[in-house]
Design a protein around this nucleic acid. Structure first.
Lengths: 211, 211
DNA sequence: ATTACTTTGTGAAGGAATTCACAAGCCAAG
DNA sequence: CTTGGCTTGTGAATTCCTTCACAAAGTAAT
């Protein structure tokens, strides 16, 4: 397939959210214009985004809501269950383990890990915290797709190297470091400090920020 | 000032992190090449990013670490204290209130709010949860710069409209909705579900994702 | 002081993403 | 079955961002 831009994928996610809302409200069709208004973009952008994957609309009419939603779920890989582990049972890790929004979308958290002996064996929202030592074995055996990394910055690269070797496919990194991973591994960084600095920059410079 | 791209600001944040690391290790100078290697970009990109704000380097030598760090802190608006409030004392809101990384960077959390009478008055990590009803008054009186929004999706737009009217400057939105704010308000969205769907897309399509 | 080497700062070139603009297709009404 | 009104899908134009490439400016050694 042709290369799809990061920004396009983000927007597809957004469109899906709106479609699910429309679906619930019983709307049958939606135009690119309405979708665009809702997402703060343009109708041309919506149509271009979708056009990378096929033509799903009817000229003169718009898009059938449930069909397009189904198509987007398919494109985004939400048609199946993904196996997720959380590594690091600190504050963020524990909060994420308790967040049930994952499951709804097919992100099935199957375990949470820590290296601290004082934490291993304790329970967090139904999960028994597992020992980090067993992670390679588990990743392979339980066919883990995605790791959510909430370990301290110093430990992050070492952990990610281990799980990549064990066969992980994707990593969502909360540690404030730039991780080195092979090209075929999907990596996303979530960094509160950086987002806040974006706001602080905008405030300090009175620059209109568009996001 | 000329318009600065979102991506540039993110990289400046990243460079600052590296510089602070180098600073701590006592390094006096750093080249754009080394900075680039650390951040997964190119030396030309580093120089171009910095060039929007001035010329801080010495040809043949590189950049003086503490000077460049100071300059970046200044550019990013980290030279002063920002007053931050958290709105929504649920799981995420409470976790953020307990996160002390904010304070270090000059983001001073001064209060946490909820509309649930059962929560108002309770304490979270040293903060007494305040009643959402008093938010307009407080935003104005305490000169709040940044609001971190962790309320349910249904309430988000209404709350943001109120605080914008009360004079807030920037909003970091955790609710999975696209908020409407005037142009002069800085807005950042943090959306776990969307990030995960990005990973899921990459896994489902084996598309190398670059982030 | 001259030479060899290094690294910045920046116009120009190239590439990527967004927006424009319009032909093509579909529906409904008469 | 024709006309009018809408909305899609997509090349072309445009805008935005990144990379190239090199003159200018510094260091160090002889």
């Amino acid at each position: 397939m042709k290369h799809i831009a990061e920004s396009t994928v983000r927007r597809l996610s957004l469109y899906l959210r709106f479609l699910e809302d429309f679906e619930q409200r019983g709307l049958a069709t939606i135009s690119s214009d309405e979708l665009a208004a809702r997402g703060g973009t343009t109708s041309a952008q919506v149509r271009k985004d979708l056009s990378f994957f096929g033509s799903f609309g009817k000229r003169g009419l718009g898009y059938a809501v449930p069909e397009l939603a189904a198509k987007l779920r398919d494109i985004l890989g939400l048609g199946r269950e993904w196996h997720v582990i959380i590594i690091g049972a600190g504050k963020i890790g524990s909060a994420l383990a308790q967040y049930h929004g994952f499951r709804q979308r097919g992100f099935n958290v199957v375990g949470i890990y820590d290296s601290d002996p004082a934490k291993v064996g304790k329970r967090v929202d139904g999960f028994t915290i597992r020992d980090l030592a067993s992670i390679e074995k588990d990743v392979a055996k339980e066919e883990i797709d995605i790791a959510v990394l909430t370990v301290p910055a110093e430990a992050a690269q070492q952990v990610v190297t281990r799980i990549v070797k064990a066969g992980i496919g994707a990593v969502m990194n909360f540690a404030p470091v730039q991780l080195q991973v092979p090209d075929h591994i999907a990596l996303k960084n979530v960094n509160m400090a950086m987002e806040l600095e974006g706001l602080s920059f905008a405030l300090a410079n009175r620059t209109p920020l568009n996001d």
